[in-house]
């Protein structure tokens, strides 16, 4: 069953803060992460299914999957001085691959790919105690052509149906966003007004409208990673978002959101 749904920023400066970052802003996002952790403890999930966009870490140009599932026994990665490893809920991961393919989604799966920091940063702050196994779900966000927002929404809807039919208690998390432009001349000028308009739609329970956004619009708004949120929205339908925080830094719109189910 699907017992919870959250979206979290994964800005690496929240984990390892250089002097360029406002410490109080970072701590305010940490407070929102702590609230997610408390909710996860209360929801007692058997697994966390996390949708994140790889930063050209697990998948380089040897293979660029649109949608992928980590379906081994464990996954691990590194980021700077951080080393991390998580057990995978293999029965759930395998069910997602098998039933996803049965439903017409040609999923890529891996038992041997590094786990990107997009998964790790939110989990560093929100993993409940005792920890629960993970099912990492990848959506291609950085290597065009990415899956369309509509395809992400449809995949999320199928994923939600698969999770609801399971006996395990599953929390679905999306990692990413909001507006940021790493590596471009827009890095210091994200589209914060665009983010706020999206958050207003989400708090009104109008998440399905995000499925109609074009790839070009996501790129222009610095929101290519929103595909992870749109996948989650397919699963939660018209649930209304509870925005824990929206903290615009000089380069990044940091949001933490729950969709109470």
């Amino acid at each position: 069953m699907l017992v919870g749904a959250f979206a979290c920023a994964h800005t690496p400066q929240l984990l390892s803060r250089p002097e360029t970052e406002d410490r109080n802003l970072v701590l305010r996002v940490h407070t929102a992460f702590a609230r997610v952790k408390g909710r996860l403890q209360a929801l007692r999930p058997d697994a966390i299914a996390m949708v994140a966009g790889d930063h050209i870490e697990a998948f380089f140009l040897n293979a660029v999957p649109a949608l992928a599932v980590y379906a081994g026994t464990e996954c691990a990665g590194t980021f700077g001085r951080y080393r991390y490893r998580f057990p995978i809920h293999e029965p759930l991961a395998r069910a997602i691959v098998e039933q996803g393919i049965e439903r017409g989604f040609d999923l890529f799966y891996t038992q041997d790919a590094p786990l990107d920091y997009a998964f790790y940063v939110p989990l560093h702050f929100t993993m409940p105690e005792p920890s629960v196994p993970l099912v990492p779900l990848h959506v291609n966000v950085y290597l065009p052509p990415q899956p369309t927002p509509r395809r992400c929404y449809e995949w999320g809807r199928a994923l939600g149906e698969i999770l609801r039919a399971r006996s395990e208690r599953v929390v679905l998390m999306a990692s990413g966003g909001m507006s940021h432009f790493p590596g471009t001349d827009r890095y210091a000028s994200p589209e914060f007004d665009y983010d706020r308009r999206l958050l207003n739609l989400l708090t009104a329970g109008r998440g399905r409208e995000l499925a109609a956004i074009t790839a070009e619009e996501l790129d222009r708004a610095g929101n290519i990673e929103l595909r992870t949120w749109i996948t989650l929205l397919g699963a939660v339908g018209d649930a209304k978002a509870d925005v824990y925080c929206y903290e615009p830094s000089w380069h990044h719109g940091n949001a933490v959101v729950e969709w109470p189910l």
Binding site: S16, V26, I56, G80, P182, G183
Partner: peptide
Amino acid sequence: LVARGAHPYLVFMADLRLRMEREAMTFEDF
């Protein structure tokens, strides 16, 4: 580099990783 077809994120993160080692940048790790 971008004009030659380099991916902007790879340019960004490769540069950051090199600067982190060359400049001994200081971080507060959480």
